[in-house]
Amino acid sequence: MRPLTEEESKAVFTKLANYIGKNLVHLIDRNDEPYCFRLHKDKVYYASEANMRLSISVARPNLISLGTCFGKFSKSGKFKLHVTALDYLAQYAKYKIWIKPNGEMPFLYGNHVLKAHLGRITEDTPEHQGVVVFNMNDIPLGFGVTARSTVDTRKLDPTAIIAFHQADVGEYLRDEDTLV
């Protein structure tokens, strides 16, 4: 377990900023407790400093996870967000998509969001913008990247893709082993 290097933090923060924009500040400067990012076995964890200090006593081979896992670095140094970060993303998300009940299960099986399943979308969402996907009861289901801006979606036919799938909570069942 170690703090992120400058390059690594840059990779993580640019990825996060894609979803939560300026709200990123709220993750770093919190009012309640100081929190920090830590790297352990290529995975990035976000935990309060008090918890992190306690976790230091666990030896490296024995530590499995601490706090919240945000994602992992690939071998080529790219950062991939995991669905485990969804709690924080949903809390601070700038752009959101709500999907209808009939679209919930297809999305949870890892499919893209189709126009037919779209319930609601934040007004001024641009193209290729990170969005958090909710169902109509406001339960966060995952996140993705928009394929078109809000204005363009109006003209699309029902089978067109609105948002590309990136992560969904179904991964807790499908990829339990690689998740954290």
């Binding site: 306690l54 499995i64 706090g67 919240t68 998740l179």
Partner: peptide
């Protein structure tokens, strides 16, 4: 693995998952 996944799924942010033989425990912490 499933322990950590469950902790994340349930939104527990104060959990540290570790894998020791329980008998080592007062020594670890």
């Amino acid at each position: 693995k499933s322990l950590a996944a469950n902790a994340h799924r349930m939104g527990c942010k104060n959990v540290t998952v570790c894998s020791y033989d329980g008998r080592e425990f007062p020594k670890v912490m």
